[in-house]
């Protein structure tokens, strides 16, 4: 089970990243749990200053941009 965390305070881009991550995970057919991290303290604890960001199993993969689904898939695999 992969733990996917999408960091963002709720801006449109953050929602977009969450949705695309969900799509990527489903297309890969992996078991996952998606958590939206909206608290600013928690976001900063990952060292992220530019939202949105994606954390996979505790490791920061993307910050400050929304990559295409194909690229997110590579990060999840």
């Amino acid at each position: 089970m992969k733990k996917l965390q999408v960091l963002g305070t709720g801006c449109p881009k953050c929602k977009q990243l969450a949705q695309m991550t969900e799509t990527a995970a489903q297309e890969l057919g992996i078991e996952y749990e998606l958590i939206k991290v909206t608290d600013i303290n928690d976001i900063l604890s990952f060292g992220v200053m530019m939202t949105p960001a994606l954390v996979v199993d505790g490791v920061l993969k993307v910050a400050g941009k929304v990559p295409p689904v194909a690229e997110i898939k590579k990060l999840l695999a």
Binding site: T9, C11, K13, L44, M49, M50, T51
Partner: peptide, 17 residues
């Protein structure tokens, strides 16, 4: 900077810190 107003707060805190 790709500035989107939602990044203003984390950037501010990160800089001051």
């Amino acid at each position: 900077t790709p500035f989107c107003s939602c990044s203003a707060v984390p950037l501010f805190i990160g800089f001051v810190e």
